[in-house]
Design a protein around this nucleic acid. Sequence first.
DNA 1: TTGTATGCGTTATCAA
DNA 2: TTGATAACGCATACAA
Lengths: 355, 355
Amino acid sequence: MRGSDAAPAGAADFVAAGVNIVDVARRAGVSISTVSRTLRGSLNVSGDTRERVLRAAADLSYVPSPAASRLASGRTRTIGVIVQFSARWFFAEVIRGAEGVLRASDYDLLLFNVGDPASRAHLFQTMPLRRRVDGVLAVATNFSESETTALTRLGVPLVIVGHQPGPSGAGVGIDDTESAAMAVRHLVLLGHVDIAMISGLPDDPIGRGTTLARRAGFSAGLHAAGLPDRPDRIVSEPWGVEGGRRAMERLLTRPQLPTAVFAESDEMAFGALRTLRRVGLEVPGAVSVIGFDDHELAPASDLTTIAQPAYEQGRLAAAMALDLLTGNTDEVDQRLTLPTRLVVRGTTGPPRRDL
Amino acid sequence: MRGSDAAPAGAADFVAAGVNIVDVARRAGVSISTVSRTLRGSLNVSGDTRERVLRAAADLSYVPSPAASRLASGRTRTIGVIVQFSARWFFAEVIRGAEGVLRASDYDLLLFNVGDPASRAHLFQTMPLRRRVDGVLAVATNFSESETTALTRLGVPLVIVGHQPGPSGAGVGIDDTESAAMAVRHLVLLGHVDIAMISGLPDDPIGRGTTLARRAGFSAGLHAAGLPDRPDRIVSEPWGVEGGRRAMERLLTRPQLPTAVFAESDEMAFGALRTLRRVGLEVPGAVSVIGFDDHELAPASDLTTIAQPAYEQGRLAAAMALDLLTGNTDEVDQRLTLPTRLVVRGTTGPPRRDL
DNA sequence: TTGTATGCGTTATCAA
DNA sequence: TTGATAACGCATACAA
């Protein structure tokens, strides 16, 4: 049933599986080169044959074999995306943003989740990326030097999401330091002078760079307000809700309870809020809390926070990778810094008066 | 370090890009077929040559070209995963579970996000899945008949995550109806008799099947307790936090406030909690709230809920797809139903006494 | 156990 | 503008 160009109309519906470029060419009465040209870009194809080819392809509901196309062209039309925890809000949003852009350009997105050391080692040792992607998006992953080298050696465009302190290259991110300072400024303007920070472990692979940058912003914010920089007011716990919960518990054991808390991420802020609610401390009456991210669930907790455009970062990073690929840009060293903004909700207010 | 016995040391490190099977064969002093055989499964290869081949491959840091391999074998070693909103908790967890299993078996995971109608139509019309996957995981997406047909016509194993009422096939999911009834039972045992349900729109593409099943469980639970089934106590709003918030607001306008609320999902429960907190109604003092999912942030809200193993469903579905592919199972019609469990936290308690 | 040879379905080069 | 034809790099049936 497959080939016969005189086949009855409905037949094609059922055979689509094994239809190849030869079948289309035969049906259109042209050569396979013409089919190939027509189907992508159609440069230098007369309107007439173009019509015939497209119709033939549609009739047979032809889909080019990606494998063959990749082998012949050397291009995979695939972008690899490296994240640590694909299910976490930030990563998930970036992935979603990138997927949309890539799909629209008919690119595939290949996901690499390297949260645990084993899979991370696997990625960088056997380098499965090697022959399967035309470009790489590395999301908020601070790479070691050898990892960076491995990535560079791939010889494909690399776009980093979430600025890294180190080497140059293409990237999109936010200004973590300035944004953290913005959070502190908000608290200071409310009248707070005793502000603590809840933060991830500085050597946690999850986001060392981010943690350090936001800590720096915390200090800078205090400094700008003429307040003393008090490193003892920075509490470190593993990143996440649980860490936030524990960090807040630790703050409660201190002789002096701060009047406000800046959490490095909304997730940590959620944990902190949980602890405060549990012990019956009012927010923001007794303690103000401000987070970072504007997580999807921040409104549900009425959390004041610094919003960062995660989805947008994914979109832009993907677009950037595509540009790099198609040579639409000469800027190989393009770094985009997106704005963040303060979102005031109900968890911040003036300090209590017990000081 | 790498290459040694023939080529100059550093060389291999830099050329890895263009190394192909011929290079490996030459270096090992064997034919390319032997290399091919050795590198996958190594059936019928003598220990000696096997050694040589592996060493040669390692020396050259050879990575087989997936494109060539796919073209020659006809297999893609790729599983397509269709979800609606890759960033939502449930989907994200399933993806994460599947990715781990697939990666471990050296399969790629190709993500298709079809939340908006346009991309959904695109997926089913041009069927980009056609020549790019060996199997498909469809996550909690209730397909139309024509969509199901299109999927079936792909001729590859299909595993559905989240049971569908309709056709048979392979699948993994939970018993939504029984689980919802479990939630009601918990409330009934606490003494509640006036229970409302907050639910998604029954014709929302997000999860019609799920919504209907959980509603049925709600009714069944009431019935089992000898309580009247009151459809007027089911409030429908778009799925999500915002929907939950509005649904609770609507309940507040009713003449009689229920003493307990069962939310179809934790996200909706978060919204409901938000509303209750805003108007100053105590939870569970005035109103008890129970959710469904055990979302990552449920503990942070101290939310009582029905836990379902999303990550595990992803793992099992992927494993099932792999089994179907390798013929490790004769059960083409395997349906796995995983247990759910009640997780009692702080948002449920005895009813208030005003009735 | 190992090697030879063919085919997989495109892209791209070169002629026409 | 169109058509032959040689890669692309591997898997596999078959032969040795």
